[in-house]
Nucleic acid binder design. Structure first.
Lengths: 322, 322
DNA sequence: TTGAAAGCGCTAACAA
DNA sequence: TTGTTAGCGCTTTCAA
């Protein structure tokens, strides 16, 4: 691939002059400018991003770390982030932690090796000390997406509030018992449960951690057997919701007459499912936009500033399943 | 971040000696080796991948270009590719062309700028002259994944064969009219149609290019109205299939009694849908493995060799919808 | 307006 | 076994 030095030789100017032309400096004689540009075009010059990055620390590279790219929600998020980054002249190095902290840690090292200008991350355990420590060492700006990490720039949806919304909706629809599929420390469950406890439904709300289909189906069956009252399942994500729907169908439980189901993330399949799935929609495009904007701002204007902590709110998408 | 030169100063050796230690050369006195390693650990040294890449052309970076990462199939593929690459010490720069050739072209330039060691691509139009020309200019190895590009290393599933399999299956299940959702030059339709034409069903097989739900639903309705014979819809991917299922439900057409539906890619949701979706499964893990292996081989042992052209075969996953 | 020179962090000769 | 020197492709002074 042709270099500036070679173009310089071909056009009989110095290499820095070529640099000036190619970077759009206006202090070059039009005649030379033409000559250099023509030569660059002819040989299809592409600057060496490594050499450029070696110099001024601007690699125009962003590290993006997600937990699971094969989850439609994160795939969408990654897609939007990539688009936003591209619009601003940045490229993305993508990492998939697969919910494995070892991977996450390893990636953070890789990111440093490539001297990325900044990192967008969906941390596995955003509250852990290890995560904070690693971020400290990174010495490039980091923006946490989807999760809230205290003291760090975070662009996220207020899960507790979303959970409360779900509770209100389910109550209004006449459901009186509740099962959450997911971890009990999950923000959405925290908010969900809190609302329910407040009005005395604490004993009627439980949670199950998803391990595999067999285990979940059994848990579901147990829960169904405990009472004949109309209940609702709040799934931690749409993937779980889809499985719940399937299990319920197998058990010949009618949705939403006997049991309601609501998902989370509002992935695109939801509106085509049978029954159409109610879900909680996160403003993906907006999150991607704000996260990238914040990150680029940190990159462009370094120095300490207060951490961004602006929870966006989710919205309910009500369809047939509740 | 600390550099080799700085470590050299701190440990009172020359910088190349630090390089030797850190790269595991055995020709260094144990005492020095210890000292240097300790210092590196203490300061959490991470080599500068840019400087390294600027030198020996090995950036340990792979460009990955897909058409749509938000499609579950490609998300899975990307995930596997990333994992395979990582196992071999490579990182991934990810691009999403969004089926836009302009993006694709632009990305190929970016890839050159970062001097990636190789590229894995799902091209938009693998048969076009433009694509071949761009690949030529790339002067790094390129492996085409999912599609077949003549004369280039290609790891792909034989879509025509898959299409033929679908035809045989549908016929066996007693369907007698056929509608394919997708482009007529799509390999799977080519193979599908060919099989059908051979036995005289040419006039009974048609295709519709998906534009949006309204248009597709209308086309579907038209097709249904043309005959009362039992027919099947072959969707170009599972996403289309899901929509077809939804449209059919709206039209109160029973699946698979009156109309069969089969998808493509066998995305994970398929087994939970109502009805469970029959689909064509591509060996994603194997494709990722072979593609990365081939690419790394090209990188490690340059020089002309015959292009890899080894079509893998897809397999039918038959569930309730056919 | 242009060029010469230095340097980013590293590897790769080559000497000692 | 270690150090010296040069150079990868670029940007950035500093002179001219």
């Amino acid at each position: 691939m042709i270099t500036m030095t070679e173009i310089a030789k071909l056009t009989h100017v110095s290499q820095p002059t070529v640099s000036r032309v190619l970077n759009g400096s206006m202090t070059v004689a039009p005649e030379i400018r033409e000559r250099v540009l023509a030569c660059a075009r002819e040989h299809d010059y592409q600057f060496n991003a490594l050499a450029k990055g070696l110099q001024g620390s601007k690699t125009k590279l962003l590290g993006v770390l997600v937990t699971d790219i094969s989850n439609g929600f994160f795939a969408d998020l990654a897609k939007r982030i990539e688009a936003e980054a591209r619009e601003n002249g940045y490229s993305i190095i993508l990492f998939n932690s697969d919910y494995n902290p070892r991977n996450e840690q390893e990636y953070l090292d890789v990111v440093r090796r490539y001297r990325v200008d900044g990192v967008l991350a969906v941390p596995i355990r955003e509250t852990s000390g290890e995560w904070r420590e690693y971020v400290k060492k990174l010495d490039v700006p980091v923006v946490t997406v989807t999760r809230r990490a205290k003291g760090l720039d975070s662009v996220y949806v207020d899960h507790a509030q979303a959970g409360a919304m779900v509770a209100a909706h389910l109550l209004e629809r006449g459901f009186r018992r509740f099962l959450f599929i997911g971890k009990d420390y999950d923000g959405k469950y925290v908010g969900f449960r809190r609302s329910l406890v407040e009005i005395g439904y604490g004993p009627r709300t439980a949670n199950v951690v998803y391990q595999d289909d067999v285990q979940m189906n059994r848990a579901l069956e147990d829960w169904l057997g405990q009472s004949l009252e109309r209940g609702a399942v709040f799934a931690g994500n749409d993937i779980y919701a889809l499985r719940v729907l399937d299990a319920l169908r197998r058990l010949e439980v009618s949705v939403p007459e006997r049991v309601g189901v609501i998902g989370f993330d509002d992935t695109s399949m939801g509106r085509y499912l049978n029954p159409r799935l109610s879900s909680v929609s996160q403003p993906i495009a907006r999150m991607a936009h704000e996260a990238v904007a914040r990150l680029l701002d940190r990159i462009d204007r370094p120095g300490p500033r207060e951490a961004l902590d602006d929870p966006l709110s989710a919205s309910l998408v009500i369809r047939e399943s509740t």
